[in-house]
Design a protein around this nucleic acid. Structure first.
Lengths: 229, 229
DNA sequence: CGATTGTCGATTGTATACAATAATGGGCAT
DNA sequence: ATGCCCATTATTGTATACAATCGACAATCG
């Protein structure tokens, strides 16, 4: 079967470039494309059944988002993130998300609060069943709702990009024992701050949780070999 | 004279795409390309003496940065920023820059402090001469130094983009009377916090200054017509 | 007279072709 | 055997060509 053709079929209203961006982004996040891997245009074109123009445009988008990196005449490669850079990214993400949390609380939308509570209880349930996969999905949703409640479109998009970037190394963070319970407690705290209308407190809670991930990462990567981060 | 050819000559080590990005970005910031203006590919290609491929790649970069926006099949246009969006951007910028300031102070680099002092005194000088143009340049430099002192590369780039975006409407902010003196006072405060090593205070100072710009903008655009923001 | 549809032109989306440069490998000299 | 140089080749950078879609205007029908 020609795998390439499916691309053209799938796109209903999406343009080819968008499809390619999503596809490659997904593969990078999932680790199917490893950091440092060379992205040879002709090769990818053939595999995907597309031509170089849309691929190169997709490359530019992904580069802007930090998923790819290139030097002129040397070609694109999947961005290679050092531990230090990853820490840098986490610091930014912590700030952006805590800002969003602050704004979300200030907006005082009862429907948002309701949604957060629902997700929170759902997470408690799947945590008891030790379903980390389901938990991760709900967790993402929880923070997505929080971000969107900021009603700041630019911020929402920015956070989305940064979350995706850190998720490339999520596996590491989430496999840590106790992390799940800490996460649940954190959500509880945020919801409580939300109920109190204490935006600053919610902001601090959110920031602390994200920054804590850095510790986990640092610990992990000083023990084990830096591998091919 | 063929204006187009200069493009190819100028690039020494820069690729065409980079040159185009810089050029268009500059024109958008300076207002030479107005918000909402259609960017017809063929037209620009002829004017610039380039072909569509690099132009379209530059488009993608600029779109990622928020300077352009496009709908499929409808074409690119210079992004049209509502007052609300501009406020959103300022809120993000305030957060990013205050974060950078915090990190900068924590790094405690005496050379940075020295550089900030130098720029500060320079600004006081040109302010006395009412040279707002020179002041603006020094001001940009001041905050650039502050951002770079964070030593967080990703953050530095992000701030750069956001600063450029808000600078599209800088004219408005800076023509306000009293703004210059307030700006000088703010720098003084930040330097003092730096000397004390009080990162949190410096962070608050920086944030307050940027957020204040929003007020100025809002005032300006509720009096005057929203124009073609 | 208004609405609808068809056709044409303009413009974007995609593919291919050409040019320039960097990586590779083999031959030759030391 | 090893290191340097040159040629070859692979790959990116740029330009052009082709296809698909959208918008506007006009012709036709109710």
């Amino acid at each position: 079967m020609n795998k390439g053709l499916s691309y053209k079929k799938v796109r209903k209203h999406k343009t080819l470039v968008e499809s390619i961006v999503e596809d490659l982004q997904g593969k990078i996040i999932k680790g199917q494309l490893e950091p440092g891997q060379k992205m040879v245009e002709a090769e990818l074109c053939e595999k995907m059944g597309i031509s170089r123009s849309p691929l190169r445009e997709a490359f530019r988008v992904l580069e802007s988002q930090g998923f790819l990196a290139h030097e002129p005449r040397k070609g694109m490669q999947v961005s290679r993130v050092s531990l230090e850079e990853l820490e840098n990214i986490y610091v930014i993400r912590a700030n952006l998300e805590s800002l969003a949390t602050n704004l979300a609380v200030k907006n005082e939308d009862p429907q948002i609060l309701e949604e957060l509570r629902r997700l929170h209880h759902e997470m408690i349930r799947v945590a008891q069943e030790d379903d980390t996969g389901a938990y991760h999905k709900l967790n993402l949703k929880f923070h997505e709702v929080l971000a969107e409640a900021s009603l700041n479109q630019r911020l929402i998009e920015l956070i989305d990009t940064f979350v995706k970037q850190t998720n490339r190394y999520r596996v590491v963070v989430f496999s840590t024992p106790g992390k799940l319970q800490a996460s649940i407690q954190n959500h509880k705290d945020i919801i409580r701050s939300f109920e109190k209308g204490d935006a600053e407190e919610a902001e601090r809670m959110r920031r602390a949780a994200i920054l804590n991930n850095i510790e986990v990462l640092r610990e992990h990567f000083t023990r084990e070999e830096p591998a091919n981060l």
